[in-house]
Design a protein around this nucleic acid. Structure first.
Lengths: 144, 144
DNA sequence: ATATAACTTCAAGTGCACTTTAAGTCAAGG
DNA sequence: CCTTGACTTAAAGTGCACTTGAAGTTATAT
């Protein structure tokens, strides 16, 4: 006999479990992203499934999806398997946008790294005839 | 004799050159990030150096630096070489924060990719006995 | 000469994603 | 029993990074 312990999280306990605050959870609920159960007295409760769902939402959010993107996704999800093509297309668009940003951000990091190295060499007195950052970049073929 | 063409950009031309709008440039100036020259009549003008400077600022911004971080950097820069240690420390902190975010975001992408693949397999009817996403993730050792 | 496009300042408005406040209800521990 | 903490709603406030508007001046093209 498996222990049938259905965990019923209060909003506060759930907030800790997913790393959000209770107000944020209420806000997400207002936005239609979560639909917790309610006790007879009106208090929300959440279950294990909801933990997974919110964590998944946070992954999507972390790839750049806005609340309204997420809401659209949730709406389609609630409509059933017929909307899988739409959901797939949405996620593919998100991925494509993400990859553009990802490349840009890697370039930004390269420049930041170059600048840090430039300062470190300057500090260490490695630069004999102090070279300006622009020509330092060019030496590595790093542009702009 | 080299053609001594000092380019004097108006704010509009400069905006195009750096990919910002004129109001944004005025905003950055208010924040102390740029200090354009002025014609006798009060109109701003920018030069080639300013293009490089703004592009560099945008790289730093793109690594997650806020306007106020940038302002601090600019203030130290204006104070001369004595502040190189502070600037270096700031950029190292920025890099460190960036790398944390970068790892997180890569994990988010992995989950997004997995979800897309899961939908694609479901769509294509590759999933014989439809597998839920949670166990699909586990098959790849991708957690949460 | 005159229209219109680009510039000037300063203040107010926008969008996003929360966060905080106010006023009240409810549950659990001593 | 009663205090304390957690919960409820609805509305207002916050922070960031711009963006827009208003009112006026100046430069350029016809």
């Amino acid at each position: 006999m498996p222990t049938n312990t259905k965990t019923n999280y209060s909003i506060g306990a759930f907030a800790k479990a997913v790393g959000l605050t209770a107000p944020t959870l209420r806000y997400y609920e207002d936005q239609g992203l979560i639909e917790p159960h309610r006790h007879a007295n009106g208090r929300r409760y959440y279950q294990e499934d909801d933990v997974n769902w919110v964590k998944f939402l946070l992954h999507l959010k972390g790839t750049g999806m806005s609340i309204s993107d997420l809401k659209q996704y949730v709406t389609w999800r609630a409509a059933g398997d017929a909307t899988i093509p739409q959901r797939l297309a949405l996620l593919q668009r998100v991925k494509s946008d993400f990859l553009v940003q990802f490349n840009e951000v890697q370039h930004h990091l390269q420049i930041l790294n170059d600048k840090i190295n430039w300062y470190e060499e300057k500090e260490a007195g490695i630069m004999t005839a102090p070279e300006d950052f622009a020509s330092y970049l060019k030496r590595f073929g790093h542009h702009e």
